[in-house]
Each structure stands twice: as structure tokens, then as C-alpha cells.
């Protein structure tokens, strides 16, 4: 599972992507993925507004995840 990070999420994690490899426990849903990232990066847990896409489609918290999914975490950005 590949998780692409954008905006402030990328800044918090310090990488533009996270990988879940064969041996890692893979989150079962979008909300579990958010929880797992928050456990490692508490600042991420403070973000109240985030769009998540699974395989390039917007996904609500209850969308189930599969090991082969490509995920994007997209916080709103305001700069102009």
C-alpha cells in the first residue's frame, strides 16, 4: 500500500509518501489509516479537514482499504 502525502500532511510526516510493505499491518479502512498515521505523528491527528482519495477517487472514512490500494492524503491549502 502506497500513501501519497500532500500539503501540511507531507510537512508533518517529513516524507512525500508512506509505504506499507508485506510485513506491515495494513489499515482496513480510511479512518484506521488516519488513526495509524496519527499514532506515529501526533500533529497529523490535529488536522480537522482532510480529503482522502483511494485509487484516485475521493473516499469517506468508512471506505475499506486493500493492500494494493494507492492512497492520497490531501489537506486543504490556502495560499494564493
Amino acid at each position: 500500500m502506497e500513501v501519497l502525502l500532500f500539503g501540511i500532511a507531507k510537512d508533518i510526516v517529513g516524507e512525500s509518501q508512506l509505504q506499507f510493505t508485506e510485513s506491515d499491518k495494513v489499515p482496513s479502512s480510511v479512518s484506521e489509516l488516519k488513526r495509524m498515521i496519527s499514532e506515529t505523528y501526533p500533529e497529523f491527528g490535529k488536522l480537522t479537514s482532510l480529503a482522502v482519495a483511494v485509487n484516485s477517487e475521493y473516499a469517506e472514512d468508512n471506505v475499506p482499504l486493500d493492500r494494493n490500494d494507492e492512497i492520497a492524503i490531501i489537506p486543504p491549502v490556502s495560499g494564493g
Binding site: 501540511i8 490535529k46 480537522t48 495560499g79
Partner: peptide
């Protein structure tokens, strides 16, 4: 896409963050 406005200071702007 983003139903509600994020909290203040949650997302930095260009003035603080640079561009």
C-alpha cells in the same frame, strides 16, 4: 471536497510558509 474550514493555524499560509 473540504466540507468545513480548517481551524485557525492548522494550515499555514504563504506568508508564514513561503512559496
Amino acid at each position: 471536497l473540504f466540507p468545513n474550514m480548517p481551524n485557525e493555524n492548522e494550515v499555514p499560509n504563504c506568508n508564514e510558509h513561503g512559496v
